[in-house]
Simulated scan of single mutants.
Amino acid sequence: MSNRPAMNVETRWAVDPKTARAMDTAALRSAFLVDNLFTPGRINLTYSHLDRLAVGGAVPVAEPLVLESFRTLGTQGFMDRREAVIANIGGQGTVRVGDSTYTLDQGDMLYIGKQAGEVSFSGHGARFYIVSAPAHQRHETTLIKIEEATRIDLGAKETSNERSIFQFVHAEGVKSCQLVVGMTKLAPGSVWNTMPAHVHDRRSEAYLYFGMAETTRVVHLMGEPSETRHLIVANEQALLSPGWSIHSGAGTANYTFIWAMAGENIDYRDVDPVAMEDLR
């Protein structure tokens, strides 16, 4: 394919909790906040040394966008030793994987297994969110419509956390090597997510906040339970969350977020709860 738009790749190094305690707001944002994910006609990818997660965005316009390998991966093709989940947060679009083409409506996700072949994105109006992690085993590429995801309704209006969790790639659903991916939608009038907080030192996590008005913001809480920090997050910005950090937040209005984990296991329930009285 000729004249392909460039794919921009940024690398983020892992940050330990002792270093994070001394970081100011600008340093925290530089290390953990991922913005400018969605640029028309391009793929923007951030490669993190947190369990070697890669997160990115693809916004096709006229020509298909191809997910290419890059030097850090050390492989000829992007999918040679990795798996990925593609989520469409925009209008209808298509993802071509090898010789197969998949149509994704808004809210759908596509799991792509190791060695699946070249991946490309098409569809003016589609906005594809990309999450990828190393894979040691090959699993079947599978399209998961949002109505097929496992839905769990939690919270209440009285505690401002009424929400629906949609599990797409998990141990009891579509199989993967290490990716666990889902989406949480907060009901109107609810703003809190993942509180009481938890950590899971066995897995790193990435959050993508979206479905927000231009002026809506989420106060994302991170850091050790005894040394919390916060970041102000706008629409279609993502957060990288180390295993030692809490990952919670509250918004100025309701919002939606995609959560994706990779690490030692794929047990969604394997978390270390943090009691409210232990937060500082």
Rank of each mutant, 00 (worst) to 15 (best):
T72A: 15
L73T: 04
L73C: 06
L73S: 05
G74T: 12
G74I: 09
T75P: 03
Q76N: 12
Q76H: 14
G77P: 02
G77D: 14
F78I: 01
M79H: 00
D80F: 05
R81M: 12
R81V: 04
R82C: 09
E83R: 08
V85H: 00
V85I: 08
V85L: 00
I86V: 15
N88V: 05
G90Y: 11
Q92G: 12
Q92F: 03
Q92K: 14
G93L: 05
V95I: 14
V95A: 01
R96C: 00
V97M: 00
G98R: 08
D99G: 00
D99I: 03
S100D: 12
S100R: 15
S100I: 07
S100L: 10
T101V: 15
T101K: 09
T101C: 08
L104V: 11
D105M: 11
Q106A: 10
Q106W: 06
G107V: 11
G107D: 13
D108F: 11
D108K: 09
M109D: 06
M109F: 12
Y111H: 04
Y111V: 08
I112R: 00
G113I: 09
G113M: 04
G117C: 04
E118V: 13
V119R: 10
V119P: 07
S120A: 06
S120T: 07
S120C: 04
F121Y: 12
F121H: 01
F121V: 00
F121R: 08
S122G: 06
S122D: 11
H124K: 14
G125R: 02
G125V: 05
R127E: 14
F128H: 04
Y129N: 06
I130H: 06
V131L: 07
P134G: 08
A135N: 11
A135V: 03
A135S: 15
Q137T: 15
R138G: 11
R138V: 13
H139E: 09
T141L: 04
T141A: 02
T142C: 09
I144G: 01
